[in-house]
């Protein structure tokens, strides 16, 4: 029984990292209907930035997270401006945007693998604070987990405030609902889209650092699988729905940890996707998404 609760805690930890990634997926999909395959690579960059901030620049851990968030924001906005914005303006088919995202993803992975950038090797991640374990009702809770939960919670609260309580959030919701009308209302749609990319990247960057301290090994292709998993979480929760992405992430985190603990770790990806497919077939709009009517 204790083992079960311990796994629950581990699932919560993994789910928190996924939540930080999947929010970017869901917001970007919500706003420009793009499955941003490069999002997992922003998460990878975040992990590397945190790594250098801690090892090279000897930053404090929290400063390192902020550093990584800011850099990821800048890079993602640049990517949006250089790669996606011209395509959007040309009104090309959606598949081109998707292929471009895949191109960006390949570029980031292979560029990061260059020896003059991050190099192709696995790097051990530093742990910039002491790992203390607490015994709590018979469970072992480590300082890593506490920090992960705490940072995730703070970031989610800030995001929630931004989206629900500020003008920027209102504009974001307007743009995702109807771009043309938002434009007519005097909203600068391009800026809002850039801002969405920035927000998503900031969260992914933080997620990268947290992933690094939880599962301490990083490499240039580390973003692919967590990125896909976070995307699955976003779809599971109902893509475009913020709270859905968070809940979906915890569900995927739990599924993965429990599959690894009770069945076999080799099957965890398969089970996560099998559940996704089953959910999609019964509720195509995801667990928390709204149903869209058919139009003739």
């Amino acid at each position: 029984m204790n083992y079960f609760f311990q796994q629950l805690l581990n699932g919560f930890q993994l789910g928190s990292v996924y939540a930080l990634i999947s929010l970017g997926y869901t917001m970007i999909y919500g706003i420009i209907r793009l499955i941003n395959f490069a999002h997992g690579d922003i998460f990878m960059l975040g992990a590397y930035f945190g790594f250098y901030a801690i090892t090279r620049f000897k930053f404090n851990f929290f400063i390192a997270i902020l550093f990584s968030m800011v850099l990821c924001m800048i890079i993602n906005v640049l990517i949006e401006k250089i790669a996606y914005a011209p395509l959007r303006k040309k009104n090309v088919p959606r598949i081109n945007l998707l292929i471009t995202a895949i191109g960006v993803s390949f570029f980031l992975e292979n560029f990061a693998s260059l020896k003059i950038i991050f190099g192709p090797d696995y790097l051990p991640y530093p742990r910039p604070f002491k790992i203390i374990t607490f015994d709590f009702l018979g469970l072992t809770l480590s300082s890593i987990q506490i920090i992960v939960f705490f940072i995730t919670l703070v970031l989610l609260l800030i995001l929630d405030y931004l989206i629900k309580r500020t003008k920027i959030g209102l504009a974001m919701r307007a743009v995702s609902y109807d771009k043309e009308t938002a434009l007519l209302m005097g909203i600068n749609v391009d800026n809002i889209i850039s801002l969405t990319f920035a927000l998503g990247a900031a969260l992914a960057g933080a997620g990268g650092v947290l992933y690094g301290i939880c599962y301490p090994q990083i490499h240039p292709f580390m973003g692919i699988m967590p990125g896909l998993k976070a995307f699955v979480a976003a779809v599971l929760g109902g893509i475009g729905v913020i709270s859905g992405a968070v809940l979906g992430s915890y569900i995927i985190g739990m599924i993965e940890v429990f599959t690894a603990a009770f069945i076999s770790s080799t099957f965890r990806d398969a089970i996560a996707f099998a559940i996704l497919i089953i959910v999609l077939l019964t509720r195509p709009q995801g667990l928390f998404g709204k149903e869209e009517g058919i139009k003739l």
Binding site: L87, I99, T100, N110, F111
Partner: peptide
């Protein structure tokens, strides 16, 4: 560099020949 240039070409093609 092959794998760095290839995605850049891809992005360029998507823009120039959608």
């Amino acid at each position: 560099w092959r794998l760095v240039i290839y995605p850049l070409l891809l992005i360029l093609l998507m823009l120039l020949r959608p």
